[in-house]
Design a protein around this nucleic acid. Structure first.
Length: 486
RNA sequence: GGCGCGUUCGUCUAGUGGUCCAGGACGCCGCCCUCUCAAGGCGGAGAUCACGGGUUCGACCCCCGUACGCGCUACCA
């Protein structure tokens, strides 16, 4: 047994941002670890110097933390098995690669990129079933190797794959998977720049870090035989493997930037709640086997098992994400939403205005059932923040009759007499005016809404004017009477 | 091309041989509630369980094949 409690890792390469697919992988690792009282580790796979992106690691960490995925060990917080950046662990890889060579499981290769290119073209022309390295350098004599090494000729270290072997492993999600070693290439383990490739680094680190379960994307399934071989060559105990299905675009291709947002920070910027994103992504490929769809992180931890992860890819469906966002937003208290709303205001043209918290809290309460995003408080009920500048045409046509201005004037007069009115006072006043005029209440309510909000939709009419206050309401009624001509 | 993985309503999914002429959710449509819009309640449309063969008294569930999709096939991860 590798370790008493599970140890899992999320091992992204720092290419700039956290992809939602990466988030899902990280989340499943996290949930699995927490569910089983294990450890969740962040390891940065930065062994490709050509792909180095400034600030990528910081972005990744920020996105992970925003989502609530706190890791137990990682580059910025350390741990007993560090360092957690592969670029800082080169000596481990070099040491183990050398060990492989000594045992005959690895060998130096001095072939130039040109020769490899030619070889590939040749194999393609001959329509060989599988294009692989031809083990040319495996047959170099000891003296030749020594001489090349001494001459400082560019070299890599390759895995020596023995032909005609069955490589079998049991994937937690997919069951038994079988490969033929004839289809496994003599993979480069150490590149000519001295850095390891993913395959070596991943196996060495997972062993050294006592990783018990490798939970990663399906794109790794095909290279798992190489990893299995390495574990066997090193004589190391193998972790369990679980290969997750892919996240897809609406057209079922692999989720990509071209067809929408893929970065966690994009969704954050658009106003999605982390609770909703995490909830949604958790359900893309997993379910507890019941009808529950609304989850908080602690509930996910309690319910999550790898055995219930699906095999097939899942389309990232924005409609459902939006719905979950609305659900999570409604579950939040007004006080929790307040700072977010204030932040939205600061980022809008309304930032020069100053609204009392008390006022904003009333708006939050009135609009809560009507918004899916915090920024919709501004876009769906602008009238709480500024008097209407124009009035909805369709509502004018429908509700603003010839007699309306006179009726609203009467209503305004009635409101004027009210002293510190509460909701019921407005209701009674309006009812009285309606009776006096012998019209239905709706005949007054709809034009009144139009006058004070400029719109035809929103919270209950009386809630609306209570929030606006008597003075503002009166002002808006009079302005509307003046400005709306029918 | 080769190897691997996958395939249940538009989408996410339940389903592990009979309880499924397939259940839930999102979205869509209708009704109710109602001063509007939402929310909520109720109802509806929507899947010949990719297709074709087996196995079985019986298959969405087991086996084989085909098709389609996706992944991998780098000194990228």
């Amino acid at each position: 047994m590798i370790n008493d409690f599970p140890r899992v890792r999320f091992a992204p390469s720092p290419t700039g941002y956290l992809h939602v697919g990466g988030l899902r992988t990280a989340l499943y690792n996290y949930l699995f670890a927490k569910h089983n009282k294990g450890k969740f580790i962040l390891r940065i796979e930065d062994t490709d110097r050509n792909r180095y992106v400034e600030g990528a690691v910081e972005n990744l960490i920020a996105a992970l933390k925003w989502c609530g995925l706190e890791y137990d060990e990682g580059p910025d917080i350390g741990g007993s098995f560090g360092p957690y950046m592969q670029s800082q662990r080169l000596e481990f890889y070099a040491h183990h690669a050398k060990d492989l060579i000594e045992k005959g499981y690895g060998y130096y290769c001095f072939c130039t990129p040109e020769r490899l290119e030619t070889l590939r073209n040749e194999q393609q022309k001959q329509k060989l079933p599988q294009a692989k390295y031809d083990k040319h350098c495996l047959h170099l004599s000891k003296e030749e190797v020594e001489k090349n090494l001494a001459d400082g000729i560019a070299k890599v270290i390759r895995l020596n794959v023995e032909p005609n072997q069955k490589i079998i492993f049991d994937d937690i999600i997919r069951g038994r998977v079988e490969f033929d070693s004839n289809n496994v290439d003599d993979q480069v383990l150490i590149k000519s720049d001295g850095y390891p490739t993913y395959h070596l680094a991943n196996v060495v680190d997972d062993h050294l870090m006592k990783i018990t379960h490798v939970v990663r994307g399906e794109e790794w399934l095909s290279s798992t035989p190489k990893h299995i071989l390495l574990y066997d060559f090193f004589n190391w105990e193998k972790p369990e493997f679980a290969h997750l299905p892919l996240l897809l675009n609406p057209d079922r291709s692999k989720l990509s930037k071209r067809q929408g947002d893929v970065a966690v920070e994009d969704y954050r910027a658009k106003g999605y709640l982390k609770e909703a994103l995490v909830n949604f992504v958790a359900l893309l490929g997993w379910n507890a086997g019941d009808d529950k769809e609304f989850y908080y992180m602690n509930e996910l931890i309690e319910k999550f098992t790898l055995e219930r992860v699906n095999k097939a890819g899942a389309v990232f469906d924005l409609d459902k994400l939006n719905w979950l966002n609305a659900e999570h937003l409604r579950k939040k208290s007004d006080e929790e939403i307040l700072p977010v709303l204030k932040n939205e205001i600061q980022n809008s043209k309304l930032k020069i205005k100053n609204y009392e918290d008390e006022y904003l809290l009333k708006i939050i309460s009135a609009m809560k059932e009507r918004v899916s995003f915090v920024h919709e408080y501004l876009s769906k009920s602008p009238y709480f923040f500024e008097a209407p500048k124009e009035y909805e045409q369709s509502s004018i046509a429908k509700n603003w009759k010839e007699e309306t201005p006179g009726q609203l004037k009467k209503l305004s007069d009635a409101f004027e007499k009210l002293n510190n009115p509460v909701k019921e006072d407005y209701e009674n006043a309006l009812a009285n005016v309606a009776e006096e005029l012998k019209v239905g209440k709706g005949k007054l309510i709809h034009p009144l809404r139009l006058a004070v909000s400029g719109m035809s939709t929103g919270p209950g009419m009386f809630d609306l004017i209570v929030i606006l206050g008597k003075e503002e309401t009166q002002k808006r009624i009079l302005i509307a009477i003046e400005r709306i001509n029918h």
